[in-house]
């Protein structure tokens, strides 16, 4: 007992030099889209309740690596900081997720940060997610209401449908599902799980349903719904808990009926 107390007092006496707790980060970096990736380690001061964004901000304020060498600050994307914009998606300890909701206390250290390499890397943790925008355009993820005159109020949506459709509308195109999907790779042109779920959302809307067939045609086209291999990683990584696998199966059903029906009508 006395021995233990003595040891603690000794430790406290000799500690002041390394008094502040540090957070250890290992970051996969890349200077430009065509350069080779490399890893760099950083130590930042621990602040209670801090998230991964706070760590990156600390590096930005004092861009010095673990060995004390000044380096270029790490680049990343962020916007809302409350998990509603999707901008800060990156691979944290092996899983794609939002850096803003990745709390340091809940992460195993060293914290490993990587860009989501299913997308082209622009710099460090910044990726180019244009392919997701292209996919949304392909499946017409919108409700056309423009006209030359006032079309009046649209049809009402049943509350029962609105409730589940709202869940789908929470998708913020972060790309976590695209990153985790094994079938999104350089050998396939798969548009990704989120786009199929968005097609379901807009097909469920009474006004959006007027363009239902165009979305189904797109889902049957190149890189469409048939590229899904049911690994179901998407639903595991979705930060908004969107039932992506249910959406895919529901769209499989719509596409099956549509394909058989339209073939019989030809």
């Amino acid at each position: 007992m006395t021995e233990a107390t003595a040891t603690r007092t000794d430790a406290q006496a000799t500690a002041p030099a390394k008094q502040t707790k540090k957070v250890h980060l290992i970051i996969e970096r890349q200077d430009n889209p065509n350069s080779q990736p490399y890893t760099e380690e950083f130590l930042v001061d621990y602040v209670p309740g801090m998230n991964v964004i706070a760590c990156l901000m600390a590096i930005q304020r004092n861009p010095v690596n673990k060995d004390g060498k000044p380096v270029a600050p790490v680049a990343w994307e962020m916007n809302c900081l409350e998990e509603v914009c999707g901008a800060c998606m990156m691979v944290i300890n092996g899983k794609p997720r939002q850096a803003c909701s990745a709390i340091v206390d809940k992460l195993q250290q060293p914290i490993r940060l990587k860009p989501a390499r299913t997308f082209p890397v622009v710099r460090d943790l910044v990726v180019d997610r244009s392919r997701m925008f292209e996919a949304l355009k392909k499946i017409k993820a919108w409700i056309p209401i423009d006209g030359t005159y006032d079309l009046g109020p649209g049809p009402r949506m049943p509350e029962r449908d609105r409730q589940w459709a709202y869940e789908l509308s929470r998708c913020f195109t972060c790309g976590a599902c695209v990153e985790a999907c094994p079938n999104v790779n350089e050998r396939s042109s798969y548009i990704g799980p989120f786009a199929i779920s968005q097609a379901r959302l807009f097909n469920a809307h009474p006004t959006g349903a007027m363009h239902r067939e165009e979305r189904l045609e797109a889902l049957m086209g190149e890189g469409g719904i048939h590229e899904c291999g049911n690994s179901q990683n998407c639903v595991q990584v979705c930060p908004k808990g969107i039932p992506l696998t249910t959406s895919i199966a529901a769209m499989n059903r719509q596409v099956t009926y549509y394909a058989l029906g339209s073939w019989l009508k030809k």
Partner: peptide, 21 residues
């Protein structure tokens, strides 16, 4: 052909369904 065009990432994502995939 399907097996060739699929990606394999069960090492990184070891969830049951992905292993079965």
């Amino acid at each position: 052909y399907v097996a060739f065009t699929s990606g394999y990432n069960a090492g990184q994502y070891s969830w049951g369904r992905n292993v079965l995939f």
